[in-house]
């Protein structure tokens, strides 16, 4: 399986944040997410995680969710890649 996790994750963030096409391609590993973007409140993050589950075909347990994975784009990408490898 070729790894399209990065692409899919950028698409999900584009949808959740209402970004313009390609705006999410500027995200780097260090780009801040939860706690950095005011529009990403708990309900938005819950929606984002649900979309991650649906589109990446993974299941995320609540106790897997921690500050580190949500803090930066790189953290979330690493988490999503690891989950897909387990799946």
């Amino acid at each position: 399986m070729s790894d399209d996790t990065d692409l899919l994750l950028r698409r999900i963030l584009t949808d959740v944040l209402g970004l313009k096409q390609n705006q999410a391609s500027d995200f780097t590993e260090e780009t801040g997410l939860f706690g950095h973007l005011p529009e990403l409140d708990s309900m938005a993050v819950a929606g984002l995680l649900t979309e991650l589950e649906d589109r990446l075909d993974i299941v995320i347990d609540d106790d897997e969710i921690d500050g580190e994975m949500l803090e930066t784009y790189g953290g979330l990408l690493a988490f999503a890649k690891a989950k897909r490898e387990q799946a």
Binding site: F34, D41, S42, M43, D62
Partner: peptide, 23 residues
Amino acid sequence: GILRQMLRARTLAAREAGREETR
């Protein structure tokens, strides 16, 4: 799914506030 997402939002908000809540 609706209920699950709302519960998840609440556990996330609690965690952000330093409280631990489980589903």
